[in-house]
Design a protein around this nucleic acid. Structure first.
Length: 346
DNA sequence: GTCCAGGCTT
DNA sequence: AAGCCTGGAC
């Protein structure tokens, strides 16, 4: 199953040479051989890149660094401002942890420089701690994200399915990390996975590791890494209330924990069968449905609209003109698009 | 429309 | 092991 003769030095030598020519140019990245990256920018980019594509992150990173150019500025930011800027990027616990982390870092006088210290901070796990240590400090840490798992699974033809294979893939990846330029090497591995050793149709023909790759030799590169079958998503339903008073709309901030925690939202029932009452007494009328797919279930929300007269029982009224859809998570953007069209029709 | 990729927390 | 979102590929 494994190629016992794989030369680990040869892997890093080739990857670094390839990276020197083909490194992706990214807003948070310092090109190979041009000095150290700022730990704040590495941290911010790596948190944004958790479970999120480079293409989606770029504009958010530019905006965040313009608003909050360093960790002190971020630590002093208002929670609501950070949540609003994060809206649309998903996994909102990351934004809550971002603030908690920035404040902890400022309280301790700066970012830890070693992996173990970084690992203690909110929102920084095994991957991100290694990435910051390697990229910002050129520490010889092994950085294993989804790209690296795939590259290593193919290089060594590991056919244990994920997630069971993870410890094995990490151990194999550790055998490859060089003492020289570990930061560039980590980024090279991830770039290779992102641009050549891709999930569906890997470009083996132009891969610098082509002749070292056990999966390629067996003709199974595109089949690795194997993954356990995923379970089907249940469907859930709920109601969301779009209350108007003239051109004002009723919104609320969701509870800090759980689904869409801390984000701006229109009042709704729970989405797990929890049966909350409407946020205000009114003649609620259905205007349509909104569908949204989460990690573990599909949601169908019935959108009810009404003109509300009295004081709402929960939420707050804000101007519909100035409500910025980009400050809403994706699901609530859909609700807003539907309800606003309905409201304009009258 | 469906499928899939992608780390941290509890 | 389960909860947590979105965008791109097909």
């Amino acid at each position: 199953m494994r190629d016992a003769k794989l030369s680990t030095d040869e892997v890093s030598r080739r990857l670094l040479a390839w990276y020197d020519r083909h490194a992706r140019v990214l807003p948070w990245r310092v090109p190979p051989g041009q000095g150290r990256a700022d730990p704040y920018r590495v941290w911010l980019s790596e948190v944004m890149l958790q479970q999120t594509t480079v293409a989606a992150v770029k504009a958010y990173f530019e905006r965040f660094t313009a608003l909050w150019p360093n960790v002190k500025a971020m630590a002093e930011a208002d929670d609501a401002d950070v949540m609003a800027e994060w809206a649309g990027l998903g996994y909102y616990a990351r934004a809550r942890n971002l603030l908690a982390c920035a404040r902890a870092v400022v309280a301790q006088g700066g970012f830890p420089t070693d992996r173990a210290g970084l690992r203690e901070l909110p929102g920084i796990g095994a991957y991100t701690s290694a990435a910051i240590a390697a990229i910002a400090h050129d520490a010889p840490e092994t950085v294993v994200d989804g790209n690296v798992e795939r590259v290593v699974a193919r290089l060594f033809a590991v056919d244990t399915p994920l997630p069971r294979a993870k410890p094995e893939l990490i151990a194999l990846a550790e055998t490859l990390t060089p003492a020289l330029r570990p930061g560039d090497y980590a980024q090279a591995m991830m770039d290779l996975g992102a641009t050549i050793c891709t999930p569906r149709s890997p470009a083996c023909g132009i891969c610098p590791l082509l002749d070292l790759c056990a999966a390629r030799a067996q003709g199974i590169a595109a089949d690795l890494p194997r993954k356990l079958a995923k379970k089907p998503k249940p469907q859930r339903t709920g109601i969301v209330w779009l209350g108007w008073r003239g051109d004002q709309v009723l919104v609320e901030t969701r509870p800090a924990k759980g689904l869409l925690g801390g984000t701006l939202a229109f009042p709704s029932t729970g989405w797990d069968g929890t049966d909350l009452p409407p946020p205000a007494a009114a003649d609620w009328e259905p205007t349509g449905e909104v569908r949204h797919v989460f990690t573990h279930f599909e949601l169908v929300l019935t959108v009810l609209v009404a003109e509300i007269a009295g004081e709402p029982d929960r939420g707050r009224l804000v101007s519909g003109e100035t409500l910025d859809p980009s400050s809403l998570p994706g699901l609530m953007r859909k609700v807003w698009t539907l309800a606003r069209a309905d409201h304009r029709k009258g």
